[in-house]
């Protein structure tokens, strides 16, 4: 997934000399290829994210196409106001890459764990939010972000969960992709980012008729598609490695409540910080986001129906 990100960025930058990569002193190994292939388009802005985003706005106004890279805990969360005022207000074509979203930095603690970034950015007008699940979605999302010529926050979470598609999908802004086919059924799954793979595995093992949708877009979100899925299902399970407040689960629930109310189980991070550190898998367990815990939550939810 990270290789797909780097390859796509290098390809876009080589094709368009106006593409610039700005980093807040992060991405050491990730940008080796970029620095070798496009050294004049690489700017390490230092550990100064607020200035970096303001500069990206200035560069965009001067005709450049900045990609602003940082850890999701900092880009976008530390610079929400710069994104709102300097970039989104005038729909400048700046692409924000928030890497390591969720619990990727499982040993480092709260400062590096990003579980509120979607909630912080969803209400900013003009800003799209992409959340790719595998290397194919990363490539397609990067291409789309470049071609939309308006502000995008691209959220990159745990990158080694395996593919969810077998080839490069064709993206339509706001649309979800079928990651596992099924029938119209009692239960349907919508997941984003790292938890799409988990949703597929759970459905394949326990709910073989259920369709699993991957949501590479948190915003915009095709409300007709969401409504159609809700109308064809009795219950919906939404999964994300983000707070249950203000993320994909919230966005889906908002649409469903207006057009096709059904019971929706929002699986994500409950409203608290991590208590302990450990491996990524450990932290998923601490927050009840490992496969076993998720399966139990679904069983309980169905039993309570």
């Amino acid at each position: 997934m990270r290789a797909a990100f780097s390859d796509t960025l290098v390809r876009l930058a080589k094709a368009d000399p106006n593409v610039l990569l700005l980093t807040g002193d992060h991405g050491y190994a990730l940008f080796d290829d970029f620095r070798r292939e496009c050294p004049a388009q690489y700017i390490n802005a230092g550990i100064a994210e607020q200035n970096m985003v303001g500069m990206a706005a200035g560069l965009a106004r001067a005709g450049f196409r900045p990609f602003v890279y940082g850890l999701a805990a900092f880009i976008p969360v530390r610079v929400v106001e710069q994104i709102k005022l300097d970039v989104a207000h005038d729909q400048l074509p700046v692409i924000f890459i928030g890497d390591g979203a969720g619990f990727v930095y499982s040993h480092l603690g709260t400062s590096h764990q990003s579980t509120e970034d979607i909630a912080c950015t969803r209400a900013i007008p003009n800003l799209a939010i992409y959340s790719p699940a595998d290397r194919f979605e990363v490539t397609a999302c990067m291409e789309m972000a470049y071609h939309t010529k308006s502000p995008v926050y691209l959220r990159m979470g745990k990158s080694d969960r395996g593919d969810v598609h077998i080839a490069l999908p064709e993206l339509k802004a706001g649309s979800m992709l079928e990651a596992k086919s099924g029938k119209f059924n009692d239960i349907a799954f919508i997941a984003t980012g790292s938890l799409v793979r988990t949703a597929i595995d759970i459905a394949a093992a326990t709910y073989p008729d259920a369709t699993v949708w991957s949501a590479p877009f948190i915003k915009p979100l095709d409300s007709q598609q969401v409504t159609a899925i809700c109308k064809q299902s009795k219950v919906l399970v939404v999964l994300e490695e983000h707070s249950v407040l203000g993320g994909l689960g919230s966005a889906i629930t908002e649409i469903a409540s207006e057009f096709a109310p059904i019971r929706i189980l929002r699986i994500g991070i409950n409203d608290r910080f991590s208590h302990y550190c450990g491996t990524y898998e450990y932290l998923l367990k601490e927050h009840g986001l490992d496969r076993t815990a998720i399966e139990l939550k679904i069983q309980d939810f169905l039993a309570a129906n």
Binding site: G54, G58, L59, A60, A62
Partner: peptide
Amino acid sequence: VTSGSLGHGFSVGVGMAMGVKL
């Protein structure tokens, strides 16, 4: 620029100046 929240325009200007240099 859109200002009023302070400390924004300076950075936007630095970005423009960097663009001019490039």
